[in-house]
Design a protein around this nucleic acid. Sequence first.
DNA 1: CAGAATCCCAGTGGATACTG
DNA 2: CAGTATCCACTGGGATTCTG
Lengths: 124, 124
Amino acid sequence: MSEHDDRLPVWCAGKEWCPITATATLIGKKWHPVVIHRLLDGGPMGFNELKEDVGGISSKVLSDSLDDLEEKQLVNREIVSEKPVRVNYSLTDQGESLEPLIYEMRDWGMDHLVAAEDEEDAIA
Amino acid sequence: MSEHDDRLPVWCAGKEWCPITATATLIGKKWHPVVIHRLLDGGPMGFNELKEDVGGISSKVLSDSLDDLEEKQLVNREIVSEKPVRVNYSLTDQGESLEPLIYEMRDWGMDHLVAAEDEEDAIA
DNA sequence: CAGAATCCCAGTGGATACTG
DNA sequence: CAGTATCCACTGGGATTCTG
């Protein structure tokens, strides 16, 4: 542990290191949570399979996202075969550990936003 | 319920409406999670109090964030007095319902990123 | 199949200064 | 006290095209 322990309350604030901001920085980009969710739920898979599964994402953006997630140690990239090229994406242990968080996001959305959508439909 | 129910698995995909992306859209901006966390943990408070509490955020950005959170129905803005101007920010019920998610973010960060920080320190 | 290369744009977020 | 007003730099993400 570092010297900030006596200054920083457990919950943190933005002044120094903040676990919430840190977490948000890791998975806060547009497609990251969904990509992780697909890998959690669908197991290891290839690039185009993942692309299909995520849906609505371009190759470039998925590629960028995967690069970022790999750099952040949340996703493993494994070359399975050379000809034809076959790559397998899976979650690292760190990535897998996000399971409760990702599911919490999904469940919250289901519980609190579906209803809102329906209300809007009702109004419209 | 709408007609997509038979096409969309419970977990969703990006193709149509996705609860994960929807949730991320709500709280995915840089300071949103921290602001919500401060309000969860510190109760209703005024603008500058919140600014201090969050730490490292400018007036403009906090103002923008609060506008956005208010528009998204996660935060209440209540004018308490006119002279001097006194405003009170608090969470709506919808905002409060994010408690498990926000705490999950905090806890995950504490559990999985503090160690990483320490490793980096060790290497450096 | 799994991307890389380019181009481009809108949206954040930060700095600074000012106000009712 | 609680913001606004500017200005700006950055970058994330989308469309399109090309490649080993």
